[in-house]
Amino acid sequence: MSAAPHIDRFLRIDDVMDITGLGRATVYRRMSDGTFPKQVRIGTNSVAWRQSDIVEWMANPTASSDQSVH
């Protein structure tokens, strides 16, 4: 029997702010600095973050992120 597949979720900015405790401006500033996961485009006018990227960042928030827009 194989292991269950990893299920990831897309998080919107309000979810990211709730989970991390960061403010909107801080999230975008850290993305710009390369110290926070980049958002991914999920529609023409929609972006979100992968939950797995946020969880990984939270495990070591002071490390720089090499995440890029997927």
Rank of each mutant, 00 (worst) to 15 (best):
R29W: 02
M31G: 03
G23M: 11
Q39N: 11
M58Q: 10
T62K: 09
L11A: 12
W49N: 07
S52H: 02
D15F: 05
D14C: 09
D18M: 11
T44Q: 13
L22R: 14
I54V: 06
I42S: 05
G23A: 14
E56T: 14
S64A: 14
T20Y: 03
G34V: 04
P61D: 05
I42P: 05
P61G: 04
M31H: 00
Q51C: 08
Y28D: 12
A63N: 11
T44S: 13
T35R: 08
S32P: 01
A48V: 04
R29C: 06
H6S: 14
V40G: 00
S2T: 13
R12P: 08
P5H: 01
A63I: 03
V55Y: 00
F36S: 05
T44Y: 01
L22A: 10
S65R: 10
W57L: 08
G34T: 08
D33H: 09
S65W: 01
A59E: 11
I42K: 07
S2D: 13
L22M: 12
R12S: 13
S32T: 11
I13T: 07
F36R: 08
V55L: 07
I42A: 04
G34P: 03
T26R: 10
Q67F: 04
V27C: 01
P5R: 05
M58I: 02
M31W: 00
A4F: 05
I19D: 00
P61M: 05
T35P: 02
S52F: 02
F10K: 12
V47W: 00
Y28V: 11
W57F: 09
Q39E: 12
S2M: 12
